[in-house]
């Protein structure tokens, strides 16, 4: 809608997806949560099932824009928009979530991270729609999502970082500083078996800041965001370790 108002998109037709019945949250097989793509962010935030099983999502949603926007914005829209400043793509990528995509050739399933090619560029093919997302159970994993906003509390973030800890291993995703959700593999490697080691956390932060291409934008210069990555990596790991489920 914003893109249309700004004149970036000039659609010849507008097609409402409201009557497709894609707005439910249900339990799938093996503890997977199945969320319809037309579910509003507000419904996801207020879902008892999400709060119980994936409290990191509930917490992240409470910091996403404002109540009025969440009342209307949908999960599918938030994923397909491919703006790197969105909070759900890095978080759902770190959680190992997948999207079900329907198109002329039928349905396919894809990891959330595979939806992104670059800034505002998704990988959906012509005629395809995200219909559902599937979020695997957290189980014994611990998760956190931290972001840094620079101009006001509810601004788009300069940095978004999601951490999921599974035993001694960390899965770390960054976005906003990068042009799409990006996994911090070098940092993960350093942290393997050492997620409580302060020195390893500092090294991982430094490695993370070097391993990705960082974009300057209105929310901060590339150098500033590099420093944010160094600092936030340890903070996000601490937050995940202390996350109460």
């Amino acid at each position: 809608m914003l893109m249309m108002k700004a004149g970036v998109l000039r659609p010849a037709r507008l097609v409402s997806l409201r009557k497709l019945n894609l707005d439910s949250i249900s339990n799938g097989k093996d503890g997977v949560l199945v969320v319809g793509a037309m579910t509003t962010l507000r419904e996801l935030e207020r879902s008892a099932a999400v709060k119980e099983g994936w409290p990191v999502i509930t917490r992240a949603l409470r910091t996403l824009s404002n109540v009025r926007v969440r009342n209307v914005a949908t999960v599918g829209g938030a994923l397909a928009h491919a703006d790197p400043h969105m909070d759900l793509p890095p978080l759902l990528s770190a959680l190992g979530a997948r999207a079900t995509i329907a198109g002329p050739q039928g349905e396919r399933s894809a990891p959330i991270e595979s939806l992104y090619a670059g800034y505002l560029e998704n990988t959906l093919r012509r005629g395809e729609l995200i219909t559902h997302i599937e979020i695997p159970p957290l189980g014994k994993r611990r998760a956190a999502y931290l972001k840094c906003t620079t101009r006001s509390a509810d601004d788009w973030p300069a940095l978004g970082m999601a951490v999921v800890l599974d035993g001694g291993e960390a899965r770390i995703w960054v976005s906003a500083a990068t042009d799409k959700p990006t996994r911090l593999l070098a940092a993960e490697k350093i942290l393997k078996g050492q997620i409580t080691d302060e020195k390893a956390l500092r090294q991982a932060g430094a490695a993370a800041a070097e391993e990705v291409h960082i974009e300057s934008d209105l929310h901060g210069s590339a150098d500033y965001k590099k420093q944010l990555i160094r600092v936030y990596l340890a903070r996000a790991v601490h937050e995940a370790r202390n996350a109460v489920h």
Partner: peptide, 13 residues
């Protein structure tokens, strides 16, 4: 009963 941003909400909805 839910607050929406009227400037971003399509009238037809």
């Amino acid at each position: 009963g839910r607050a929406v941003s009227g400037c971003l909400y399509l009238a037809s909805l």
